[in-house]
Computed example of a mutant assay.
Amino acid sequence: MTAVPRPARQSRAVEAQQGVKDLIVRRGLVAGDPLPTESELMEELQVSRNSIREALKALQAVGIVDIRHGFGMFVGRMSLAGLVDELTFHSRITLQNGKNHLAHLVEIREILESGLVQRLIDLGQEADLTPISDVIARMESEADEGLVSPETDRLFHDLLYRPLGNPLVSQLLGAFWDVYYQLRDHLGEPDEPPLDVAKRHRDMYTAVLAGDRAAAEAAVHAHFHGVRNRLARLRG
């Protein structure tokens, strides 16, 4: 049997990937729904087993397909893990560059949060921010002991924007946070005392509660001041 050239095999695998995605859309499947077996996909898409397996492996890597050995294949749930890995890698190799990727990511997140606090103020009384007070109290308690934990910091932002009802906000901010957290040891010691960190978070919370747009935006920018300083220090 004549071997199929590699470019041809790759092309068929790419076609199989598109075929699987089209099948998911055509059947109206959603995250967690079971997918047809390999044999069923081969028959429906008219491709070889190797092409199907290569396609499924590629789709699994980007979270479109979830393969659970012993249970079957399912439509994957959206994940930004691949994006986090890529951004972390490229940010790491450009940390000493004046135009490093991490600085760009921080800038994007700062702009995003500046807009999100305005959306919260638009919600007014519909935005239930009650859970934030407990997180602020925990943050201030940690600051008194000398360090605000990354988990508390992340929880603050997650709960603050939850009333917006947009799950992508949490995932996207979480992705930015993950990249920064993985690179934190490369940035040197923080410039801000823990009590200042806690205060900047409280200022954001207080401004949103008061509906003070200018104060909310100023608080967001102040919150990112320490991060900008650490990045500027890397640039010399």
Rank of each mutant, 00 (worst) to 15 (best):
V75W: 04
A232M: 10
H157M: 12
T2D: 08
M139P: 01
S114D: 14
E192A: 15
T94S: 14
R119A: 15
L173F: 05
P150N: 14
H221L: 13
T130R: 13
G32Y: 13
G32A: 12
G188H: 09
D185C: 11
M1K: 00
V220L: 08
D191L: 14
Q96I: 13
H223P: 02
G115F: 10
D191W: 08
N229W: 07
E151V: 14
L116H: 04
L59G: 01
L83A: 12
L173W: 04
F74P: 01
S149H: 07
M204H: 02
D66L: 14
V25C: 07
V84T: 08
V117Y: 01
F176Y: 10
T88G: 02
A219E: 03
E192T: 13
Q10M: 13
A13Y: 00
G28A: 12
E142N: 12
G236Y: 14
G226H: 06
L83E: 05
E15G: 10
A3P: 04
Q18P: 01
S114G: 15
V227R: 02
V30I: 11
R162G: 02
F74H: 07
G226Y: 03
H69V: 15
F89Y: 08
A16H: 04
L83K: 00
A8V: 15
T152C: 09
F71A: 12
L41K: 00
N50F: 04
D196G: 13
I64C: 03
L112W: 01
V20A: 04
D212G: 08
L23N: 06
I136S: 08
L187Y: 07
F156A: 10
G211T: 10
V106T: 12
V65N: 04
L120E: 05
S114T: 12
E142D: 13
L80A: 11
H223W: 01
R49D: 15
E54K: 00
A103L: 04
T37K: 05
E107I: 12
L147N: 04
H221F: 06
P194H: 09
R12W: 03
S51I: 00
G115Y: 11
W177H: 10
D191G: 14
E107S: 13
S141R: 00
L209Y: 02
